[in-house]
Design a protein around this nucleic acid. Structure first.
Length: 271
DNA sequence: ACTGGCTCCTGAGGGC
DNA sequence: TGCCCTCAGGAGCCAG
């Protein structure tokens, strides 16, 4: 489900409910996620989260500089703020009770996500160590992208979705950023001129920032932590619009599968 | 070193 | 109504 804007929307929604509240109980109803939820998650009971930060599509609940809870929402995960009286839903796998008045529930039908306590510097954790720069930071620039493209024949869309190159660009926003940059998703990375990669850096930023402003994209089931949907869907130019007219030039939007992922583009606007 | 393919899992939606 | 098929917003692992 979630790409960077959806994870950031979740972070902003959860943060005020979590920071400074003591975790009074942790309930693991289903531990079979992408990695099993370890039993020592119990050791976080009684601790007080002091920040909630995002790294790519990962969320990090910080208890101390060397103690964090790492959360990834996978394809279908979500976090929501509940009252303990609210009825439990199927697939509410992990519950963080906060002093009896409220709780955070991790819900994930497909169980591709991760809930994992980690010790030590999180930047050194194997899941985070190899990640590329944040797309909205100064660390992401044309030099980085050009270097990643050098000598690589993979389609540019596959490249920008690789989180070793840049984090947080998933299937929706990859198609959208390439549309805005006028680059065809199938283009081999090494063939793209630096000038065009410069626009791609800009459109990746733009698309993600616009979506965060709109509260993310709701395609099927994404809702923020308070249950409201994201409104970016109305601004999609190509994603899931195969056969429909391009919003710019009216040419039919095309669809193909690239690296096992659905890909959309306008054959007239994107060269 | 790259690359493409496969895999984990459940649920929604379409066709018959 | 029900059954079967396809597809879905992620990403690690594997063989060639």
């Amino acid at each position: 489900m979630p790409e960077l804007p959806e994870v950031e929307t979740t972070r902003r929604g959860i943060e005020p409910h979590l920071i400074g509240k003591r975790i009074t109980e942790i309930i693991v109803r289903e531990k079979r996620l992408r990695q099993p939820v370890p039993g020592d998650i119990d050791s976080l009971t009684g601790r007080i989260p002091r920040s909630l930060v995002r790294r790519g599509k990962y969320l990090l609940v910080e208890f101390a500089a060397d103690s964090h809870l790492l959360i990834h929402l996978g394809m279908s995960g979500s976090l929501r703020v509940c009252s303990p009286a609210d009825e439990l839903r199927r697939h509410d796998h992990v519950i963080l009770r906060l002093g009896g008045k409220s709780e955070i529930r991790y819900h994930d039908p497909r169980r591709f996500g991760i809930v994992l306590p980690i010790q030590g510097d999180p930047a050194m954790h194997p899941l985070l160590r190899e990640l590329g720069p944040e797309p909205l930071s100064a660390g992401f620039h044309v030099g980085i992208l050009a270097e990643a493209c050098r000598k690589r024949r993979i389609p540019i869309k596959t490249l920008i979705m690789n989180h070793h190159v840049v984090v947080g660009v998933g299937n929706i926003y990859a198609s959208e950023a390439l549309f805005r940059a006028g680059i065809r998703p199938t283009t081999p990375s090494f063939k793209i001129a630096r000038r065009r990669l410069e626009s791609l850096v800009e459109t990746i930023r733009e698309v993600l920032q616009d979506s965060i402003t709109q509260g993310g994209t709701t395609l099927r089931d994404f809702v923020g932590s308070d249950g409201t949907p994201g409104y970016f869907r109305q601004q999609l130019f190509v994603y899931e619009r195969a056969g429909e007219p391009c919003r710019v030039c009216s040419t039919e939007i095309r669809h193909a599968v690239l690296g096992q992922r659905s890909t959309y583009w306008c054959p007239a606007c994107q060269k």
